[in-house]
Amino acid sequence: MKAIVTVVGADKVGIIAKVSAYLAKHSINIADISQTILSGNFVMMMMVDFDNANIGIDTARKELVEELGTLGVEANIMNEKVFSEMHRI
């Protein structure tokens, strides 16, 4: 299963490192990544693959939100199919 990870918040050192370490710890592969800084705000989207993950998407969402809350940024993980349907024009 593929999912979209979004992270938004004030730019600071360690955001990508914390997300990548969390995903690696749970065998969630990063398939694609895009990040930018918009007016001082860090914005990142990742396509990740849960095929070999040792946790489910709901647990990953909850834990990643908690992990990144310590950095003051917001995160979300959404099934890629749901994300695509929500953003279909």
Rank of each mutant, 00 (worst) to 15 (best):
M1V: 08
M1Y: 07
K2M: 11
K2C: 02
A3K: 00
I4H: 00
V5Y: 01
V5R: 01
T6W: 01
T6A: 07
V7D: 00
A10T: 15
A10Y: 12
K12Y: 06
G14W: 04
G14R: 03
G14N: 03
G14A: 07
I16F: 12
I16D: 02
A17I: 06
A17R: 12
A17N: 10
K18L: 11
K18S: 06
V19L: 09
V19D: 03
S20D: 04
A21Q: 14
Y22E: 03
Y22K: 07
L23S: 03
L23R: 08
A24L: 12
A24H: 13
K25C: 04
K25Y: 05
H26L: 08
S27P: 04
S27I: 04
I28E: 00
I28M: 06
N29E: 08
N29W: 06
A31P: 01
A31E: 14
D32E: 15
D32N: 15
D32A: 08
S34Q: 09
Q35C: 10
Q35T: 10
I37T: 13
S39R: 15
S39C: 11
G40P: 15
N41M: 12
F42Q: 02
V43Y: 05
V43H: 06
M45E: 03
M45Y: 04
M46A: 11
V48Q: 00
V48T: 04
D49S: 08
D49C: 09
F50Y: 02
F50I: 04
F50S: 02
D51N: 15
N52K: 14
N52L: 12
N52G: 10
N52E: 10
A53M: 04
A53N: 03
N54C: 11
N54I: 10
G56I: 13
D58L: 11
T59M: 11
T59G: 09
T59Q: 14
A60L: 07
A60P: 06
R61C: 08
K62Y: 10
K62S: 13
E63Q: 11
E63F: 04
E63A: 08
L64N: 06
L64Q: 05
V65E: 05
E66K: 15
E67L: 13
L68W: 00
G69K: 07
G69E: 05
T70L: 14
E74T: 15
E74I: 15
N76T: 14
N76K: 12
I77M: 02
N79I: 02
N79A: 09
N79L: 07
N79H: 14
F83C: 03
E85G: 14
H87D: 02
R88V: 12
R88M: 12
R88F: 13
R88S: 15
R88Q: 12
I89V: 14
I89M: 09
I89Y: 12
